[in-house]
Write a protein that binds this DNA or RNA. Structure first.
Lengths: 241, 241
DNA sequence: AAAACTTTGTGTCATTATGACACATTTGAA
DNA sequence: TTCAAATGTGTCATAATGACACAAAGTTTT
């Protein structure tokens, strides 16, 4: 790709074209206690955005891939190693960072809030969950990034079974529906939702029921990866609604 | 995002984390004469990939956004200014470029082959069209990039009316169907395809017909942006099939 | 001039997916 | 025992889809 020149070496040219790169992660979690989709945020460490909340990000090291950087950031900020992670988009407005040129690659990631909470004390984690609908302003262009990431999450949720990454391993269909409603921002008919799930056949009924509820307890299910692969192998696609 | 430190300035830190960035464009065109989806390629200018074909790319300048870089590359390589352009994904394997660290952002772009051909002589353009199904090997990781871009194009084609960017302003439904079949790699039923188009109501019948064909001439249509906006405003989505 | 050829253009029908909706079931609490 | 508050299931009308056959408009051939 470098233009042909007589004077400069390729290495010099690369060096002259260098810019700082960062990775910013939108970490989604679903809180069934209040039915809100939440995002992990930290207080910005950049003085220009003092006291403002920001996404979880860091500069990319010169020798690591972007996925590695994203994984590293998530490990550092949540203590969790294996997370659902998806690259979303590069944000590159030349003036997006006050200290200089920084191109950032946005990722979104899905974790179980309970997994994070387990690590908070042990690892002295500082990120906090914020309800999506309450987030007004963020540092840098992080609000834009968040917006795009939500779009992507919505799409993902409708055409692949990613939602389970935000639920406990055992969950009720009601919880699953709540999650879909929270993310998509629409109401779903319980009966139609359940029918759809039944037709897709990607869940396994655990034979257990919800405990300590003051009404009829719900059946608990788990996502069955094998069933899902089988569905894909048959050329079918998971889709909601 | 930069870590807090006592010694180094933020500018220094950014500098130490700098890497070269490039933009690589997959330029798609549809050739109705042979029914093939094609891609513009040039001979690689990097000595390690001498005589190999490569995507249209360049290093990103320190002050331009990625979209600006992509537009600049397309202008230079095709002479066309207003093109359909979509950012796809960042490719960041640390060893993907032999001369050093270069993270590349892939774009795909749709143009009319005829528009390109109009400029070839005038601007002495060197890129050439290659049938997708004949491309075996490309420089760098460009084959991987191409693969991902095709996926994205397929998705785009099914859920938004982007195909028209690769057709002449006046086209027959047969041409449109050929394009869909070429891109998606599947056969479509003519009657069902036309019904779908009719239901989406985004075309305008021009009242003209195909000329100099040895059989019944086809009606010519144009894509109607207003109709499409109206469709979206009604909350409906364009989809094929 | 008529017949043959080639491709465009349209309609029907069975099947499947969707959206709207009502009632029975299971638990704990009163 | 009854009540309250959920979970869980079935039906029906409508819309979307896939499979399919025949008529229409040109050109070429005879």
């Amino acid at each position: 790709m470098p233009a042909n020149t007589r004077e400069k070496s390729t290495a010099e040219i690369l060096n002259e074209h260098s810019v700082a790169m960062s990775v910013d992660c939108v970490v989604f979690g679903y809180d069934d206690t209040d039915g809100d989709l939440k995002v992990l945020l930290i207080k910005s460490e950049t003085k220009e955005f003092k006291d403002q909340w920001s996404l979880l990000g860091d500069l990319v090291l010169p020798t690591e891939s972007l996925n590695t950087a994203a994984t590293r950031i998530l490990k550092k900020r949540t203590g969790i190693e294996k997370v659902y992670l998806e690259q979303v988009e590069a944000f590159s407005a030349p003036d997006r960072h006050p200290a200089g040129r920084v191109v950032t690659i946005a990722y979104y990631s899905l974790i179980k809030i309970e997994d994070y909470e387990l690590n908070v004390e042990k690892l002295d984690l500082e990120a906090q969950w914020h309800s999506l609908r309450k987030i007004k302003k963020l540092a840098f262009d992080h609000k834009d990034i968040l917006k795009i990431c939500i779009k992507r999450l919505r799409r993902g949720l409708q055409e692949s079974p990613v939602g389970f990454s935000m639920l406990p391993n055992k969950f009720s269909l009601k919880q699953l529906q709540n999650l879909y409603e929270a993310v998509l921002g629409i109401e779903l008919d319980r009966r139609n939702f359940r029918r759809k799930l039944r037709n897709n056949d990607i869940l396994i009924e655990l034979g257990e029921t919800q405990k300590s509820v003051t009404h009829r307890p719900a059946e608990l299910y788990a996502f069955d990866k094998k069933k899902y692969k089988k569905l894909l192998a048959e050329g079918k696609r998971f889709s909601i609604p």
